[in-house]
Amino acid sequence: MKNKKHSNGFNTPKDYFDDFEERLFIKISEDSLPKESGFKTPEGYFDQLDAVILEGVEASEKQIKVVPLFSKKTIAYVVAIAACAILVFSLTKTNSTINDINSIEITSIESYIEEGNIHIDSYDIASLLIEEDLNNLTSESEFISEDILEDYLLENIDDSSILIE
């Protein structure tokens, strides 16, 4: 069938024939179902609905126009004052104890980081690496086996669009 003598130039969308039976089956099934749902509304319901909705919206708008005791503005002032106080305090303190970065031992910096006292983003680290380092890094990722990768994806990826109910 496929080795046609002449091509007529017509074409079909990709996979058209692959799921043709499926689509046909759905169409036939749909035809056997009732066209109407059977739900009704009280008579004249939609005629007076506009007025009811607008009234409801208006009433709810009146309800929410209450000025709170602690408005956003007051909170902002309090936060600003507190921030200034902390700033002044910390400035005076650092003046009295200036530390030379060179006087700190490398090992204590290491243990400080290891204990989780400082958060360093992987992007921050990446920005310090030169291209060669990055290439070495990628080749190491080949050591991750497919099983481990699959486990990771199963446990950590939660994309409902992938899971078709």
Binding site: P34, E36, S37, G38, F39, K40, T41, P42
Partner: peptide
């Protein structure tokens, strides 16, 4: 009272 579906419409729901 606001569902006037026949037997098959009810089954469909």
């Amino acid at each position: 009272v606001y569902f006037e579906g026949d037997a098959i419409q009810l089954q469909l729901q």
